[in-house]
């Protein structure tokens, strides 16, 4: 069975609309009848990645592949890249500026939350070139 593939452009420097793509994906998966717990995990993981993209990388592109048994998400940006991915994965580590904290993010929980809610996650990042995050969540339909 062919997967449903959707692509979203995430605008950079637009904190007000950050999260719109994740909201659309969530609504679509719900409508397709995927299990609500899996849908919530997918939405949270994508939302965190989307916020990261807006905060750190001036936006980027998100691709969502919907399979009968899983959802795969790839978020790619052309931002500054992550110098030390292992360090960035630690809870509480953040390079976000204070103004981002004032907006409710930058607590150093984004990447750890993504890891927590996905069944597989890979980060490829090259400093000065950009970052690609791949996420997989096992998900089936309830009906």
């Amino acid at each position: 069975m062919q997967p449903i593939i959707k692509t979203y452009v995430i605008p950079g420097d637009d904190f007000t609309h950050a999260g719109e793509a994740s909201g659309k994906v969530k609504a679509m998966l719900k409508q397709l009848g995927y299990d609500s717990d899996a849908v919530r995990r997918i939405a949270i993981a994508m939302y965190e990645a989307e916020i990261n993209m807006v905060i750190h990388a001036d936006g980027g592109k998100a691709t969502v592949e919907i399979h009968p048994d899983r959802v795969e998400l790839t978020l790619q940006d052309s931002g500054p890249g992550i110098e030390d991915v292992e360090l960035a994965m630690q809870e509480g580590y953040s390079t976000a500026p204070d103004e981002v904290r004032a907006l409710g993010f930058g607590a150093g929980m984004g990447l750890p939350n993504i890891k927590k809610y996905t069944d597989d996650m890979k980060i490829e990042s090259i400093v000065g070139t950009g970052t690609k995050i791949y996420m997989l969540v096992k998900a089936g339909k309830t009906s």
């Binding site: 007000t16 609309h17 999260g19 994740s22 909201g23 939405a43 949270i44 939302y47 907006l103 409710g104």
Partner: peptide, 16 residues
């Protein structure tokens, strides 16, 4: 929350 911006609503949305 004391956070008064659209992301508080989006966070609630993601969490159902």
């Amino acid at each position: 929350t004391g956070l008064l911006n659209p992301q508080s609503v989006r966070t609630a949305e993601m969490l159902d």
